[in-house]
Design a binder for these strands. Structure first.
Length: 514
RNA sequence: GCCCCUGUAGUUCAACGGAUAGAACAAUCCCGUCCUAAGGGAGAAAUUGGGGGUUCAAUUCCUCCCAGGGGCACCA
């Protein structure tokens, strides 16, 4: 990666010049006039940028300029041309980096209660959780995608009551009516469990399959009870003197770890709380050897963070091993007004409806474009209208155009190989700019695996597509006489590869024609 | 009351503490096709909610205020 190499060069130069270890950051300036990369290190260590620039020599670089205190680096044509060959060599593995070194990460997302269909909000977390897993895998982490099923407890009993249609019913909707026909059990708890199973198998799992997500582990809360793991977790806390009895309940001293107040593990009526299950579940996850646990939660679960971190520390692990990504809630807008979504009231937009109306690729792109912190509004009618204008088609169109040219060129792969030896004719500004976009992918993967800002990826795919469309305008691949320019075919194939790899990371298809 | 998130162009969103705050959609105009015009280009549109502060440099960090969303259970 050029960025890494430049960083090393600067660090070395600074060390030799001033005998200090400066923290060097390499940026990509927005304006290409400021170079392909730049650094502000001269300003942060208050030294002369020209002096630093003079100390650097590399075949990577065509020139180094100093402006406004920044040192700007311009990549050489030779380096860029060689990258095309590199991409063609690496193919689908282009973009992979080694930072993860095979470390095991558990990525838990969606984990919606099996009390109803998956909705918009679940989709947001689902797409983001899935794509983060893709990125982490690209960064050489070993990722397990996990879904936690709350298949026992209060909400399951309530589901049972709802199916039975008694006065304790809370869930509404056509699916409850359907379940009522299928389930002939009088006991609310048993009826609830049966209903949960049907909802999971016939509603949730098919919806997840439909949106292109594959979970490695479906983890049942009930299994924690059955395997006595909750008991063991509680014994563990007791042995560490981290729990105590008060007013007939068993409490967990979460305040020892920074929580506002202690929390109940076993209620006075003898039932364990959700937290008790979670302590056991956390213990289970860590014992499976994960170095890091990622959770995608909706903002309504914010209050739970302190508890989970406390539990992590109580179990003897570091709270840094837990990364909780809070997705702000999706607001449903209808006729310009917010409609409160709620499974209990039966007002929501399901994943099935969403995909049916706007399609999977557009839906994925829509959600991936927005950062987790944005409180996004979702207007289904507007989304339907805007579907045709979704930028995802702009990106896919670039891929389709490439496929079309390649098909037309009738070039054979074997013949091409020898042509790659020389790519020196790729000199046009639009060709070089396209290559500059291509080589960003590993950097995008590196940065995103680090900070989880998934929206960087769709943004990048648009930049990449734009660079291609400009190249398409400026540089003909198939000449008027019908012969093709093989070096440009090579660039085309490299672009196709990078587009495919990027779309694959987002879980979006790369159509050959549109 | 306390905690978290948000407030950026007409709209929906971007922007590792950096250079002239970027896109897309909408609105205006140009390029009539020759490898897919689902494309390309030009211009217009922003006092980044408001006031202080830290910094060589603030949309970004701190602080106060205003507005909105979420959370503060022996619920999940």
């Amino acid at each position: 990666m050029a960025r890494k190499d430049i960083k090393k060069l600067i660090e070395k130069a600074v060390k030799e010049l001033y005998k200090i270890d400066a923290e060097v950051k390499i940026d990509r300036p927005q304006d290409l006039a400021f170079g392909d990369y730049s650094t502000n290190v001269a300003m942060t260590i208050k030294k002369n940028p020209q002096e630093i620039a003079n100390a650097i020599k590399s075949g990577l670089l065509e020139k180094i300029e100093v402006k406004n205190g920044f040192v700007n680096f311009f990549l050489s044509k030779e380096y860029l041309q060689n990258q095309v060959r590199e991409i063609l060599k690496q193919k689908e593995s282009f973009g992979e980096i080694e930072t993860g070194k095979g470390k095991k990460i558990n990525d838990e997302f969606i984990s919606a209660n099996p009390t109803g269909p998956l909705t918009l909000g679940n989709g947001r977390g689902g797409f983001c959780g899935d794509v983060l897993a893709n990125i982490l895998e690209k960064a050489s982490f070993k990722v397990v995608r996990e879904y936690y099923i709350n298949d026992t407890g209060e909400q399951i009993r309530k589901l049972g009551h709802s199916v039975l249609g008694d006065e304790e019913a809370v869930y509404k909707g056509a699916y409850i009516e359907e379940l009522r026909k299928k389930i002939k059990i009088d006991n609310p708890e048993k009826a609830g469990e049966k209903a949960a199973k049907i909802i999971l198998e016939e509603m949730i799992k098919p919806a997840i399959k439909k949106i292109g997500i594959k979970f490695d582990v479906w983890f049942s809360e009930k299994s924690l009870h059955e395997k006595k793991q909750i008991e063991k977790a509680l014994e563990f806390l007791k042995a560490k003197s981290l729990s105590y009895e008060k007013e007939g309940a068993l409490w967990f001293k979460t305040t020892n770890f920074g929580d506002d107040k202690d929390r109940v593990l076993i209620k006075a009526d003898g039932e364990t709380t959700y937290l008790a299950s979670d302590v056991a579940y956390l213990k289970n996850k860590f014992e499976r050897g994960f170095e890091k646990l990622i959770f995608f939660w909706g903002a309504d679960h914010y209050g739970y963070i302190a508890r989970i971190k406390a539990a992590t520390e109580a179990l003897g692990y570091k709270k840094e091993q837990i990364d909780i990504i809070i997705e702000q809630l999706v607001r449903l807008i209808e006729n310009g007004k917010e409609v409160k979504m709620s499974k209990r009231s039966g007002i929501y937009v399901t994943i099935d409806e969403l995909i049916g109306e706007v399609g999977l690729d557009a839906a994925r792109f829509f959600f991936l474009t927005r950062g987790a912190d944005s409180h996004l509004n979702f207007d289904l009618n507007l989304a339907k209208e805007k579907t045709e204008k979704n930028p995802v088609y702009y990106v896919q169109y670039a891929h389709a155009r490439i496929c079309s040219i390649i098909k037309k060129s009738k070039i054979k792969n074997q013949k091409l190989k020898s042509e790659y030896e020389d790519l020196k004719l790729l000199n046009h500004a639009s060709e070089l700019n396209l290559i500059k976009q291509l080589i960003r992918l590993p950097e995008i993967v590196e940065d995103t695996a680090e900070d989880y800002q998934i929206q960087r990826l769709p943004q990048y795919s648009i930049d990449l597509a734009t660079a291609f469309h400009v190249f398409y305008r400026d540089c003909r691949v198939i000449n008027e006489d019908g012969n093709s320019n093989n070096q440009r075919i090579a660039l085309l194939l490299a672009t196709k590869t990078v587009l495919e790899n990027t779309l694959k990371l987002m879980g979006i298809s790369a159509p050959e024609k549109m």
